[in-house]
Each structure stands twice: as structure tokens, then as C-alpha cells.
Amino acid sequence: MPLTPLDIHNKEFGKRLRGYDEDEVNEFLDQIIKDYELLIRENKELQSQLGTVQEKLGHFANIEETLSKTIIVAQEAADELKNNAKKEAQLIVKEAEKNADRIINDSLVKSRKIAMEAEELKKQAAIYRARFRALIESQMELLSQDGWDSLDSSESRLREGSGSL
């Protein structure tokens, strides 16, 4: 057990012949008591400061641990957001590809339908031209027959006869 200033103060030495100067010893002991009390106070202050520093260190260690966990959680959340964004982008691309395929297929169907309609119209136009040509040719044939000349002469006669009326 360590000495206390009171232990030093209460310490008494036996007297002998030709011993030390009692006043000098007492002065020296008084000086030791003062120095020892000062060291004890300083030690208590340092222990108090050490407790405060350890408390602050614990607080900062908790803050560091919390920040570390927060950073990890934030990184995980960022990674999850990144992965979700990639998945969503892939879904959007797939949907766009499906829509593009559908539009292309619809366009091909419409194109084929229009091509078939155009082909049908060409056939109908060819048939119409052939029939019209046949009609014109038959009319030309009728016009080129000899019977028309006699009609022309009877017509002229009729005009002459009606002029005398």
C-alpha cells in the first residue's frame, strides 16, 4: 500500500545520540509532504483527464464505427440501385426490341398487302385496257364497213330534200 502525505507527516523517528538535526529532518519531511501531495493531485488530475480522453476516444470510436457502417450501407444501396438500373435498362431494351420487331413485322405485312393490291390493280388495268382496246377495235371495224358509205349518201339526200320544203 502506497504512502500517503499523512503517513509521512505522522512518521516519527527514534532519537539517538549524535542523530540527525531534528529541524532539518522535519523541514525535509515537510518538503517531501508538499511534493508528494502535489504529485498525488497531479496524478488525480491526469487520471481525470485520462478518463475524459478515454471517454472521448470511446465516443469517437463509436462515431467511426457508425460512419463505417453508414458507408457500407450507402455502398450497398448504391450497388443495389446500380444493379436495379441495369436490370431496368435491359428490360427497356428488350421491350424496345420487341416493339421494333412488331413494327417491322406489321410493316412487312402491310407492304405485302399493298404490293398484292398494286399487282391486282395492274391486272385489272391490263384487263380494262384489253377490253377497251377490243371495244375500240370493234367500233373501228364497224366504222370501216361499207354500210356507212350508203348512210352518208342517204343522209345527204335527206338534207337536200328537206331544204326544198
Results as ranks from 00 to 15, higher is better:
M116H: 01
L108Q: 05
S153G: 05
K94S: 13
K110E: 06
S111Q: 00
I92P: 04
I92F: 01
K122P: 07
S150N: 14
E97Q: 03
D152I: 04
L121G: 03
A126Q: 08
G147H: 03
W148E: 09
A130Q: 02
L143N: 07
K87P: 06
K98P: 00
S144H: 08
R102G: 09
A126G: 10
N99H: 10
N99R: 11
K113D: 00
I127N: 09
N105L: 04
A118Q: 04
R157K: 02
E155L: 05
D152E: 13
N99E: 15
Q139S: 12
I136Y: 00
V93K: 06
R157T: 02
L143T: 10
K110W: 08
F132A: 15
R133P: 01
V93G: 01
E141K: 09
A125Y: 11
I114T: 04
Q90I: 07
S107A: 15
S107D: 14
S111M: 05
W148A: 00
K87L: 13
E120W: 07
A126F: 12
E119I: 10
K94Y: 14
L151S: 05
A96Q: 08
S153L: 11
A134Y: 13
A118Y: 11
Q90E: 14
V109W: 00
E141T: 07
N105K: 07
I92L: 15
K98S: 09
S111R: 08
S156K: 14
L151E: 02
R112E: 01
R112C: 13
